[in-house]
Design a protein around this nucleic acid. Structure first.
Lengths: 152, 152
DNA sequence: ATCCGATTGTTTCATGTCGAACTATACCCT
DNA sequence: AGGGTATAGTTCGACATGAAACAATCGGAT
């Protein structure tokens, strides 16, 4: 989308950086999760959910919202699909009957244990064009960007 | 998704950088296009299409694929919605009857002319946590990341 | 004990997104 | 010409995504 817009140097610089940020994010995401999709039928959000439960234990859906940074309604959908595929199961919390605790099934445990190492390897590969220092610098710049929070 | 995974320093570095990249991209994207959606009912892809035609003139859909970096079927959908909302119109190319040339309608021209400056302003604002040099460095790192291309 | 507001999750609706199968058209080659 | 291949778009099915409206439940205040 840089197209042929001519703005002030400030505007050009910001637009240029933004486009490269989006492009990098999209490209890497596509490479990473395209493979995951083809080889294991998992989407990015599905992996996020399985991964969170794998490392943190059974969680309620609100917790998953925080982990994968998606809306509540979206988490409902993603967990629905995982449940239909037999990878997770919901259980009502006895002490607070509003909450659904999401557990891995045995199939889910097996899948995430098998898939995650390969995924990490692909992440390392995707980031390999950058040195360790460059990765750190990229992280620092991205963190600064993410902060300018809109306070509601 | 960093959760509690402990890997080699290489793996930790890559995962950490990746998460920050995705988070920054998502956060900025959400802030930018959330506003655009609320105020003008436009999505990111719709803005991309209007912007491309605004600056480059009427284009065929394949050209739009390249500009907004989305699949052909997706461009069909996005242009469908824009057309339904009266912002663009399709015209068959006389010399190659497979081609649909997408034009801005008057309403589309008015909208993009009105919306784009505000959008640029928000982009500048979103990138303002970074100095000009930092924006340049972010761009450089992102470009390196985007290159590791899978050759089909 | 009761009521009100907050929290949790679901449903609905509109859009985006991709890949695969399909149609129509164009171009090339003999 | 005729046939084969390539390209432009569309359609379809599956999943993602968020906002808004809704239901169920909890908890605090009175």
């Amino acid at each position: 989308m840089p197209t042929h817009f001519k703005g002030t140097p400030q505007e050009t610089s910001a637009l240029d950086a933004l486009i490269k940020l989006f492009r990098a994010s999209n490209t890497v995401s596509g490479r990473l999760f395209g493979t995951l999709q083809k080889e294991h039928g998992l989407t990015e959000s599905q992996l996020g959910v399985l991964e969170a439960i794998h490392f943190l234990g059974p969680m309620q859906q609100t917790g998953l919202c925080g982990k994968i940074l998606r809306s509540g309604s979206n988490v409902t959908t993603v967990v629905d699909n995982l449940e239909r595929n037999g990878l997770v199961r919901r259980e009502r919390d006895a002490s607070d009957r509003r909450v659904q605790v999401v557990h891995l099934t045995d199939a889910g445990k097996k899948l995430i244990a098998r898939v995650f190492p390969d995924h990490v390897e692909r992440v390392v590969d995707a980031l390999s064009p950058l040195s360790r220092d460059e990765q750190k610098e990229l992280g620092r710049l991205c963190r600064k960007l993410g902060l300018g929070n809109t306070q509601p």
